[in-house]
Design a protein around this nucleic acid. Sequence first.
DNA 1: CATTTAAGATGACATTTGTCATAAGAAGAA
DNA 2: TTCTTCTTATGACAAATGTCATCTTAAATG
Lengths: 200, 200
Amino acid sequence: MIRVLIAEDQQMLRGALSTLLNYEVDIEVIAQANNGKEAIELIHQLSPDVCLLDIEMPIKSGLDLAEEMFEAGSVCKVIILTTFARTGYFERAIGAGVHGYLLKDGPSEELAEAIRRVMNGQKMFSPELVFNHIKQDNPLTSREKEVLKLVASGLTSKEVSAHLYLSAGTVRNYMSEIINKLEAKNRIEAITKAKEKGWI
Amino acid sequence: MIRVLIAEDQQMLRGALSTLLNYEVDIEVIAQANNGKEAIELIHQLSPDVCLLDIEMPIKSGLDLAEEMFEAGSVCKVIILTTFARTGYFERAIGAGVHGYLLKDGPSEELAEAIRRVMNGQKMFSPELVFNHIKQDNPLTSREKEVLKLVASGLTSKEVSAHLYLSAGTVRNYMSEIINKLEAKNRIEAITKAKEKGWI
DNA sequence: CATTTAAGATGACATTTGTCATAAGAAGAA
DNA sequence: TTCTTCTTATGACAAATGTCATCTTAAATG
């Protein structure tokens, strides 16, 4: 019996998938979590064989969770299940070492099969992702990402500089460089583009 | 046997819900649609008893579809199934005369029950919606909304003014007023807040 | 070891953004 | 028929944003 944990904040989908998987004779959903924090506790308590993780969840994202698990030496298989085909997410997941990455836009029937394959040591990725993976590298340095994230959260340049203990001019320079790199007209377009590509 | 159509663009959820509902002895999912346009054709061909409609779908939204159906005198029951607790959507759905409005954040078990009740002439609404429906009115005028939408798409004030055949100063005034109304620090925060509340 | 890149800074400058006072015309409500 | 709200506009001003050139130091790469 494959023991599965599902972490997904949309209750309707989580419930439906659990019921569905429980109909499979060799699969049992032993736990459901609403967010990454809840999931981490349940994983410690129950050590499931496979974790199905959504990415965008409150408190702690599925990617954060996966990275933590592997760092801590977890042997649990991890399948990311998300709406987002963003290259950034996919790359980060691969880098973390996940065993599968499926899109919510795929057929639900394949899910049980994916779980079995992953348990069998194989990897499972949505084909459209592998195909689209023409390395859209993040052109931003880590500092630039930090700055852009703060600006995207609504802070002014001056506030960002106070936050990061930088001079106001430096932040302005960073923003200028970011806008230039992303070929944007202004910070708003830069934010939109960076989010689309999964760069922040 | 209650004959059900599901229109939902996220294949995983659509598939899972269909399978789930088909396990119910008195319910049969007779059709699945990827978008509003596909749904409308299937409804004409098959006249289902109940339609489960997502709101945000490509080509034609679930709300557009529901309104069209009732205008055309359809007797099919309509249940909106969506992620969004936005007051605007809810109000529009009520106005159109839908028979149910459920959130994807609710339990999947209740779905079958909701379908039965609606067939029985009752209405079904997610309690949090009715409760939260303390009229979070959109403080923006329609012109202000237009301006903010364009700014959110990355245009500068000047570009917006060219777009709407207004003077640059007028657009600046609008933005100033918008920022003031939404109690934001700058346009970026205004955009975030307005999107959160579903005001643009 | 030389070179490149990232991080950080300054200064000068032009442009954009945000605020405020003020005003006129149109439409709708009391 | 007033009164209010919405749309549109100007002008003036302060603050924020974006661009560019230039410079230092540290770390990484060849």
